[in-house]
C-alpha cells in the first residue's frame, strides 16, 4: 500500500498501476515539449491531465502508450518497465476511429483476432458492446451510427483488449453537448465495471467541468516546456452534480492554475 499527500490531507491509496518517471519529449534539442513528468495512477482511480493547448497532453498520452518513444524517462506498468506498445495500455482517441468496412461487432473483435477462438471473441465483443449500452447494434456499420455510438464502440474495443490501464485522449470533444453529458455520466460505471479487468484510467481533457465530474485526481500541466505544476485530488462523492457549490470551487481551482493572473 502507498500513501500520498494531497493538499495537506493524507489518504491511503491502492497499488500503483502506471507510473512514469522523469518523462520528457522533444522534437529537437531546441523544441522541448515537456520534461520531468512524474505521474502515478492507483487501482480503481481515474486520473485526469489538464493543461492549456500546446502543452503536449496528447503527445504525453501517446508516450505513456509507448506509441511514441520518450526522449528521456521511463514508463512502468505494475513495476515493470514498458518499452513497446502493449494492449495492457489501451488508447481511446480524440478523433473517433472505427473501421468503416467493419460492423460494430467486428470493430470490437478486431483486437481479439488470433488471440482467442472466434466464438470466444464474439462472446467477449458482445459483452463489451452490451456494457457500453449498444446491444442490438452489433451488425450496424459505423456510418449507420451517431458519433456518440461510435465512441462507445471505440470504448468497447478498448475494453475488449482486457487492458489494465485505459488512456482517453479528450474522448468527448467531438460529441455534441447532450451526447457528451450522457456518456460522461455513464463512463465511470462502464470503465470500472467488475465485468472488465481495468484498474485505472488516465483522461486527457481541457474541459474543466468534465475533469471535476470524472476524475479522482488531476495533474495540471503548464509552462514552457510543460511540466506538472500542480496535483489536485477531487474529493467529491459520486455521482457528482454541477449544482453543488464545491463542484465550482474545484473548477475555479483548476482554472486558476491554468490561466495566469494577468490574463484573467
Amino acid at each position: 500500500m502507498n500513501t500520498q499527500v494531497f493538499n495537506g490531507s493524507s489518504e491511503t491509496l491502492g497499488e500503483v498501476q502506471l507510473e512514469c518517471k522523469d518523462l520528457a519529449y522533444s522534437y529537437s534539442s531546441s523544441h522541448v515539449i515537456f520534461k520531468d513528468i512524474n505521474i502515478k495512477t492507483y487501482t480503481d482511480e481515474l486520473v485526469a491531465i489538464v493543461g492549456p493547448s500546446g502543452t503536449g497532453k496528447s503527445t504525453l498520452i501517446r508516450v505513456l502508450a509507448n506509441l511514441i518513444p520518450p526522449t528521456a524517462g521511463h514508463v512502468f506498468l505494475n513495476g515493470i518497465e514498458v518499452k513497446a506498445p502493449s494492449s495492457q495500455i489501451s488508447l481511446v482517441h480524440q478523433s473517433i476511429a472505427t473501421f468503416p468496412w467493419m460492423t460494430a461487432l467486428d470493430n470490437v473483435k478486431i483486437v481479439l483476432r488470433n488471440k482467442v477462438k472466434d466464438d470466444e471473441a464474439t462472446e467477449i465483443a458482445k459483452k463489451m458492446i452490451t456494457l457500453v449500452g449498444l446491444q442490438g447494434h452489433e451488425d450496424n456499420y459505423p456510418k449507420e451510427m451517431s458519433g456518440g455510438m461510435r465512441q462507445r464502440i471505440a470504448i468497447a474495443r478498448a475494453l475488449a483488449a482486457s487492458p489494465t490501464i485505459m488512456l482517453m485522449d479528450e474522448p468527448f470533444v467531438h460529441l455534441d453537448e447532450l451526447t457528451a453529458n450522457s456518456l460522461r455520466s455513464e463512463i465511470y460505471s462502464i470503465v470500472f465495471n467488475p465485468e472488465n479487468d481495468l484498474k485505472s484510467v488516465i483522461l486527457v481533457s481541457h474541459n474543466l467541468h468534465e475533469v471535476v465530474q470524472l476524475a479522482d485526481r488531476v495533474y495540471v500541466m503548464g509552462g514552457t516546456p510543460a511540466q506538472i505544476i500542480n496535483e489536485i485530488k477531487i474529493d467529491l462523492p459520486r455521482p457528482r452534480s454541477e449544482e453543488e457549490p464545491i463542484f465550482y470551487e474545484y473548477v475555479k481551482m483548476l482554472y486558476n492554475d491554468l490561466i495566469p493572473k494577468e490574463s484573467r
Binding site: L91, S95, N114
Partner: peptide, 20 residues
C-alpha cells in the same frame, strides 16, 4: 489513429494486412 490502433492492440501482421 488506425495505425496507432494496430500498434496499441498488437494486431498480428496477417490480420492487419487482410482486415485493415
Amino acid at each position: 489513429e488506425f495505425l496507432e490502433l494496430t500498434q496499441n492492440y498488437k494486431i498480428g501482421f496477417f490480420t492487419k494486412m487482410r482486415r485493415i
